[in-house]
């Protein structure tokens, strides 16, 4: 574990505020995966705007991929992967540019609430990636080649397992042992390993922020 300046400050703040952890700790996830080999999956597909009317963070998983998953009469669309009992797991593998569009954190909440803890793609949209990191869903960016390998492995055997290790920053196809490393900032990594979030940290430097605010140009 990274024993760093922010880690100490965050722990202190969590203790002093007597807060529960912001989200579950994340370290090693071993799971089958759900493949969605479509590019530019946007936030309006992840959760359409008409399902953003709640004032609490509950029930968003029911509407994950609502319009790809259900017909207008609310019957499941048989050809959509979430309705195919062959595929399941805590890892969602998407195509390139996953999560483009809106800043709605509801998209990440829907992914989490459905039961996914990790999203894999060869490229993520910026805000969606941040939102995932802020709620404890790990975005794992892999090379296009490794992405193809993952899709092929799931296609060959839907029960194939993938292991994601946050501490080692690796993603491994367990059947063959093929692995790749992924990037995450040491700060975010430490947060996820410990279940901390940015507010814990920001609360710990509040006095510094207030002093800073006195000398701004606006």
């Amino acid at each position: 574990m990274v024993n760093s300046e922010w880690s100490k400050a965050t722990k202190k703040s969590v203790k002093s505020n007597n807060n529960k952890m912001a989200y579950d700790k994340f370290n090693i996830l071993r799971s089958t995966a759900v493949p969605l080999p479509i590019e530019n999956v946007d936030t309006d597909q992840l959760i359409p705007a008409r399902f953003l009317k709640a004032t609490e963070r509950v029930g968003f998983g029911d509407n994950l991929f609502r319009d790809w998953r259900y017909n207008a009469d609310n019957t499941p669309k048989k050809d959509f992967v979430l309705n195919n009992p062959v595929y399941s797991g805590k890892i969602l593998v998407g195509g390139k540019n996953f999560g483009s569009g809106s800043s709605r954190e509801h998209a990440a909440w829907a992914v989490y609430d459905y039961g996914f803890r990790c999203v894999v793609s060869s490229f993520f949209a910026d805000i969606f990636r941040n939102n995932c990191l802020n709620i404890g869903v790990l975005p794992v960016q892999v090379s296009p080649e490794f992405s193809e390998k993952i899709f092929a492995a799931i296609h060959a055997d839907p029960k194939t397992e993938i292991e994601v290790s946050l501490s080692d920053q690796t993603i491994t196809l367990l059947a063959t042992g093929e692995k790749e490393t992924f990037e995450i900032s040491p700060y975010k990594k430490d947060n996820m390993l410990n279940g901390f979030d940015d507010i814990d940290y920001l609360q710990s430097i509040k006095t510094e922020i207030e002093e800073f605010a006195l000398n701004l140009p606006l």
């Binding site: 760093s4 300046e5 922010w6 953003l52 009317k53 709640a54 004032t55 609490e56 963070r57 800043s103 709605r104 954190e105 900032s185 040491p186 700060y187 975010k188 920001l202 430097i205 510094e208 922020i209 800073f212 605010a213 701004l216 140009p217 606006l218």
Partner: peptide
């Protein structure tokens, strides 16, 4: 001009002058 603190190996702590909120993304 707005960086309160720069964290080695991590993000910048950025001060926000103006914050706009609306009904959909603020309740939670």
């Amino acid at each position: 001009t707005h960086v309160v603190r720069r964290i080695e190996g991590g993000p910048d702590v950025l001060f926000i002058d103006r914050h706009l909120i609306h009904e959909v993304t603020s309740p939670v």
